[in-house]
């Protein structure tokens, strides 16, 4: 058993599309609760209980967004209280809570997505889809830090020449523009050199190949198939209306059918999958370590 990060990027991307895709577009409260629980536990499994980048801003966002809906929407049958001549209803409150749970769940999924799908993995995916887009992507990703370093170098060169001072905002801005102008000229000329070198090595003569350190093995195929099957079960439940849930004017839920139970179970498995993989990986690591 190994963590999601050790699978082929295609398998990992399919997983995220299935898990976050369902969570992004449903308003069923149980599915949303499962999505939030799965995403949060995966985030904790990846970053530890005290993640360095705090989860607090996301929780504050959750509270703010949950309150927007009851304050702007006044339909719903159960009036809780009246504020500024506007009724605040239970239905609007619960809808807001769910909508904000959906958004926070997806944001947590994407936090893990950014952690797992690093740029080399995304590059591998894009390279399959469009080699030219992948080439642009990889070159631009390399240029961003390169230009940053070059800008610093130009800046210190100009400082040494005594071309500008950082006394006031306008002077600093003018100096910044000098640096930027020099940077643009350098970047364009440097780009031409790169392009000529590419042509000299045969760019455009035949199809571009790229080295990818990922192999699509049996485990990847299993994970992909499992994700598609589980997501298919959830989609079947959503399409048949077994998971229907209405908020307005009164909260009405479809009766719990066998199909609904299957869908819930499938999504629970799907949401818990990466956390289980991650915990299994760390258990294996611990066992191997204690033997030596």
């Amino acid at each position: 058993m190994q963590g999601l990060a050790f699978y082929n990027p295609i398998a990992a991307a399919v997983y995220f599309i299935c898990a976050a895709g369902v969570a992004m577009f449903t308003m069923n409260p149980l599915l949303l609760a499962l999505s939030c629980a799965g995403a949060l536990s995966f985030d904790i499994a990846l970053r530890g209980l005290r993640g360095r980048q705090g989860r607090l801003p996301l929780f504050i966002l959750f509270a703010v967004m949950a309150l927007i809906n009851p304050l702007t929407h006044h339909n719903g049958a159960t009036v809780l209280f009246v504020m500024n001549d506007n009724p605040v209803t239970l239905e609007a409150f619960i809808y807001g809570l769910n909508a904000s749970a959906m958004i926070i769940g997806v944001l947590f999924w994407f936090r893990s997505f950014s952690r797992i799908m690093t740029s080399d993995r995304l590059l591998y995916l894009f390279g399959r889809l469009s080699p030219k887009a992948a080439l642009i992507l990889s070159m631009a990703l390399r240029y961003v830090p390169l230009f940053g370093r070059q800008a610093k170098r130009i800046n210190s060169a100009q400082k040494a020449l005594g071309l500008y001072k950082d006394d006031n905002a306008i002077d600093a801005l003018r100096g910044g523009l000098h640096v930027f102008s020099a940077l643009v000229t350098w970047a364009l000329e440097n780009g031409i050199t790169t392009a000529d070198s590419m042509s000299a090595r045969g760019y455009g003569v035949s199809r571009r190949t790229s080295y990818a350190p990922f192999r699509f093995g049996r485990a990847d195929a299993c994970l992909t198939l499992l994700c598609v099957l589980l997501a298919g079960a959830v989609c079947a439940g959503l399409a048949s209306g077994a998971l229907a849930f209405r908020y307005y004017p009164r909260i009405v839920s479809a009766p719990l059918s066998p199909l609904a139970c299957v869908s819930y179970a499938a999504y629970a498995c799907l949401a818990a999958l990466p956390t289980i993989l991650e915990i299994g990986e760390s258990l294996k690591w611990r066992c191997l370590k204690s033997k030596t």
Binding site: M139, V144, G191, M198, Y203
Partner: peptide, 14 residues
């Protein structure tokens, strides 16, 4: 052409 491609990439990075 390679030159055009690289110039577009430079603009993206900027």
């Amino acid at each position: 052409g390679a030159r055009r491609l690289v110039i577009v990439t430079v603009l993206i990075a900027l």
